[in-house]
Nucleic acid binder design. Structure first.
Lengths: 278, 278
DNA sequence: TATTATTGTGTACTACAAACACAATGATTT
DNA sequence: AAATCATTGTGTTTGTAGTACACAATAATA
């Protein structure tokens, strides 16, 4: 028995139409209208990626968010997966288009599969003139988090968004869909990952001070650490080099600058070094 | 420019057909033919789940595999997601239909998104008489691993498989698609999870001996542990109860039996206890 | 009854984590 | 120029957890 219920099932009911020219080199350029009406000819339906892009500035952990046109609601930058594209490639492509950066530390952390992940159920509709869209279907999204150097990022909104901005992790507003939940899960994963990866390598500028590195760990963990023990532990990893330079300009005593020593770092990683900070 | 290339894009090109009666209570029963030809009317396309079901028997870690009819190739038991179903529900449903068990410890560990995850690219075709199927499209799969009590499982093949059997983790054959890779990743996740969850609770029978628990950890970690230190650490968690009973029947001195104490366990979990065994 | 493989238990040593204090510095104030 | 201030740089002590290790007790077997 067939019968109308929601848009929900639209893009699972399929007739026929072949396309070509989907090689990696040649990604189609779609107009907004084409994207909503014919995006399913190019992208996988029912599945997307969302990026939680972390940065660190002014001693605060930040996350890069997009503001939608018209509704002015905020969301995580995400994207869709081309038919022949690796899901991680899609995440990298999205990341590059939002930040301008290549070669970013990227980590998949969870797939979100609630059946309510459907735009129409949350009052989000396609632009005027478009009745049905693959985008109104239920989506499962795979979350990635990225660690980027704040100062190198040039945030770029996409065609659907008003702006692209850093938000203090403590001040993130209510986001669309389950994006607050996704962000929370990303933070949890990042915290766990602290023990296996020296996140400062990606989040801090090349030269940084020990207090800066400590603030970074403190904001991610959400608690204070003992200055002396922190330094002892970090230096014991033997992946940092202390420069003969001090950070000038701040009030009070000028702290030494450090940088990650790539050779030492690789050597340490080979030995499966543990970055244990709790 | 439109042109025929592969089956690849078939189910992303969609016309129209609504269905109803997709409520959770009423799952449609499809014939094999219907499943291949019309499954996309009921399930999400391009996305699946795969379960890595771990058991423990004869001092060996085991995994439950399915053998396909005709080709006799082995694979992980998996499934598809109903349009209105939570992805985790789909994993639970699949798990129940393979093992007969409810209430299983289940953990999502990774989403596999290689564009080569396409059955036609691996010489797997739909049954005779079916030319095109949503199942021949590229799939992204979300991996879950489950921990079950070996003796309680009654393996049940599905309609497409010849048999459903336990395999010693060391002797798993070459599986279809990237299923060996998925299994490997599941094992890695399980190893990491050892530090946060007392896996013996789900993998062992209610009553078990300390040597059995130790073998479990040893097979998962792939290395020997010191008997005395192991016991000390485990007992220090204060989640086990030693019974006034010994395991009879083995050669040599009869070891004490233990069981998990649910009350102690919950108390310990609240305090965020660490199960640190390396 | 002797033998054998395995279980049950405790102690010394080492490495890492946590707590803690004071001198040195560079900018700022007086 | 001198005093003040907040912060940096550094080392010791104590406690806890991990590692290495040995011998007596036991249940089945020879």
């Amino acid at each position: 028995m067939c019968n109308i219920n929601t848009l929900h099932n639209f893009y699972r009911h399929t007739f026929f139409l072949y396309i070509s020219g989907m090689g990696k080199a040649k990604r189609p350029k779609l107009s907004t209208h084409e994207f909503f009406e014919k995006g399913h000819l190019h992208y996988l339906t029912h599945i997307s990626i969302d990026n939680v892009i972390f940065g660190f500035h002014d001693n605060q952990l930040k996350v890069l968010l997009l503001e939608w046109k018209e509704t002015h609601r905020w969301c995580l930058p995400g994207g869709f997966i081309f038919a022949d594209e690796h899901i991680e490639e899609a995440a990298i492509r999205s990341l590059k288009s939002r930040t301008g950066l290549d070669n970013i530390y990227l980590q998949q952390f969870y797939a979100f599969g609630d059946p309510n992940r459907e735009r129409t159920k949350h009052g989000i509709s396609p632009p005027a003139g478009i009745k049905k869209s693959w985008l109104s279907e239920r989506f499962i999204t795979v979350g990635y988090y990225a660690l980027v150097e704040f100062s190198k990022v040039v945030p770029k909104p996409d065609e659907f968004s008003e702006s692209c901005q850093w938000w203090d992790i403590e001040k993130v507003p209510t986001l669309i869909l389950d994006h607050n939940h996704i962000l929370e899960k990303a933070l949890q994963s990042l915290r766990l990952n602290l023990n296996d990866y020296p996140v400062g390598k990606d989040l801090l500028p090349q030269k940084f001070t020990m207090p800066e590195l400590q603030r970074l760990y403190e904001t991610i963990l959400g608690k204070q650490l003992d200055r002396r023990n922190f330094q002892k532990k970090i230096l014991a990893l033997d992946i940092l080099e202390r420069l003969n330079e001090r950070k000038q300009g701040g009030a009070h005593k000028a702290p030494f600058l450090y940088k990650f020593d790539q050779r030492k770092y690789e050597k340490a990683m080979k030995q499966g070094l543990k970055f244990g900070l709790q």
